[in-house]
């Protein structure tokens, strides 16, 4: 039995899932908070109030499309614990998320990141590395940009010194207080969803045929999107979409008990939200987990039956693709 290495945990004997996101970082960087926010639907303020014990074992969270997210115990010093088993980074559907606390001095955390990257890229040169610059709440816009640039430059420069390929490294600014964290997680998982190119082009054509502005295919429980059309994603709009899903959930509670008797039945839920501006939102259930969320001008969503007809066809295609 190896000593306290990164893969220590109750599930040590279990092999890791094929499609996996590995979440790592220093202790107290915010990993467990992120997991609890996304997968346990905790409120960020409650997370701040509660005392989260340090993660001692690797925890697995199931995401849609067979992707599993692993929350690893934070490590102070890779060299001390002998480093993670390089095997965990291998495989075409593996992605690394590294969480850095932006409210603390990043030096130590960056050194650890570099050590981790060395091991990981040696095992899997094509591994996507996603750096979450976390806890950006409380930082001014200016400071946010400065922090990101500082961290980005140091990582890329150091990788350059060691001739490591940095083309798969991405940076995200995140906090549990806004949907930035869900958006970042979505961006990470997006690339691992089976046949993601098909999905994207399907949504693109849905968008243009139905004159919609934006379409998300998302997991209603975690609000992570696993596909969207290729137009740029306005963070505000995504935040709004998330809030809409919460509200629909709250309102549907009114009819708790009136729904299906078995909870594995797809009830064909459709929602329309109208704004006092030229905007509407339409949501269409695809399967038990997934829904299509469409944003468009009122005129389009007004032709409700046509839109529903198109959405039904797209939903069917999505079910086939994901099967």
């Amino acid at each position: 039995m190896s000593d306290t290495d990164l893969t220590q945990g109750s599930q040590l004997s279990e092999p890791l899932a094929d499609r996996r996101i590995l979440v790592m970082g220093m202790p107290r960087s915010g990993k467990t908070c992120i997991m609890q926010l996304i997968f346990e639907d905790k409120n960020p303020y409650d997370l701040m109030d509660q005392l989260i014990p340090p993660t001692m074992v690797r925890t697995a969270y199931d995401m849609i499309s067979g992707i599993t997210v692993y929350d690893f115990p934070g490590i102070e010093d890779l060299a001390d614990v002998g480093g993670p088993d390089p095997e965990i980074f291998v495989g075409p559907n593996t992605s690394l998320v590294y969480v850095i606390d932006a409210q603390n001095e990043a030096g130590k955390s960056l050194a650890e990141l570099l050590a981790l990257i060395r091991v990981a890229l040696a095992a899997n040169p094509a591994l996507p590395v996603n750096v979450f610059i976390h806890k950006i709440d409380g930082l001014s816009e200016e400071l946010k940009m400065e922090t990101q640039q500082g961290i980005q430059q140091r990582v890329l420069k150091n990788m350059g010194f060691e001739s490591l390929d940095s083309s798969n490294v991405q940076f995200f600014l995140t906090t549990v207080f806004t949907e930035t964290i869900r958006e970042a997680m979505s961006r990470v998982s997006l690339r691992m969803v089976p046949r993601c190119d098909y999905l994207e082009s399907l949504l693109n054509s849905f968008c243009s045929k139905s004159s919609l502005d934006k379409v998300f295919l998302l997991d209603v429980r975690s609000k992570i999107y696993l596909a969207t059309d290729s137009s740029p994603t306005d963070p505000q709009l995504y935040q709004f979409a998330c809030k809409t899903i919460d509200t629909i959930g709250d309102i549907s509670m009114l009819c708790a008990g009136l729904g299906p008797e078995r909870d594995d039945e797809v009830v064909m839920q459709r929602t329309v939200v109208t704004m006092d501006t030229n905007m509407r939102l339409f949501m269409y259930q695809v399967n038990l987990e997934l829904s299509l969320l469409c944003l468009g001008p009122s005129a389009v969503v007004k032709q409700q039956s046509l839109l529903e007809f198109n959405a039904a066809k797209v939903a069917k295609a999505i079910r086939q693709i994901l099967q």
């Binding site: 709009l237 549907s252 009819c255 459709r270 929602t271 939200v273 006092d276």
Partner: peptide, 17 residues
């Protein structure tokens, strides 16, 4: 998001709100 709320409609096989 500068889009004042107007109305909402949730429908499925069992109920409409």
């Amino acid at each position: 998001v500068q889009a004042p709320f107007h109305s909402m409609e949730v429908r499925n096989r069992y109920y409409s709100i």
